[in-house]
């Protein structure tokens, strides 16, 4: 077991966990942050996406020992209301199980493009979100939401 100290949604947290515990389980079981979902447990579906130091990762593949002293953002601390509002209004949400991961991945790519001065295109969004599977929407509503959120942000 290790005493893991890391920042979650802006707050420093300490938990005692096995070093190879999945970050996903640490968040859900130890910190009761159940907004992060498990869809496959092998890094394919992206439902467990969280941001570590701003970068989207699959929390099912991240061992607890590797987030010591790092900054983790989950859907519960995602902020950026414009993205959530856009998902709710543009058909970006159906069953909702992919939604937290999708929103965090969207937030990360929009932030990165803004920082780099790169344009936000539909094709770019589709590539950036390819690690987040959605079975409900056909992705049209999600892409529309991300484009609107970007428009709203700039």
């Amino acid at each position: 077991m290790i005493d893991l100290r890391f920042r979650v949604n802006g707050e420093w947290r300490s938990v005692r966990v096995p070093p190879l515990a999945r970050l996903l389980d640490v968040l859900r079981e130890h910190l009761a942050l159940t907004g992060t979902k498990e869809g496959c447990g092998e890094g394919e579906c992206g439902a467990c996406t969280v941001l570590v130091d701003g970068a989207p990762v699959n929390s099912c593949l991240v061992p607890a020992c590797q987030v010591a002293d790092r900054d983790v953002v989950t859907i519960e601390g995602a902020g950026h209301e414009s993205i959530q509002e856009a998902f709710a209004d543009c058909g970006g949400v159906q069953c909702g199980i992919c939604t937290p991961g999708m929103i965090l991945a969207t937030r990360a790519c929009l932030a990165e493009w803004t920082a780099r001065g790169e344009p936000c295109t539909e094709a770019g969004l589709r590539r950036a979100l390819a690690g987040n599977l959605c079975r409900c929407t056909g992705y049209g509503g999600i892409i529309a939401a991300a484009l609107r959120a970007h428009g709203g942000a700039t």
Binding site: R22, G41, E42, G43, N58, C60, P63, Q66
Partner: peptide, 24 residues
């Protein structure tokens, strides 16, 4: 980065005695 080993461990396909975590 764990993208392979974490899956192997979870599914039980790979058993390990001890692990050297290089991430740091």
């Amino acid at each position: 980065g764990g993208t392979d080993l974490m899956v192997e461990l979870r599914t039980g396909r790979t058993q390990v005695a001890s692990v050297l975590d290089l991430w740091g």
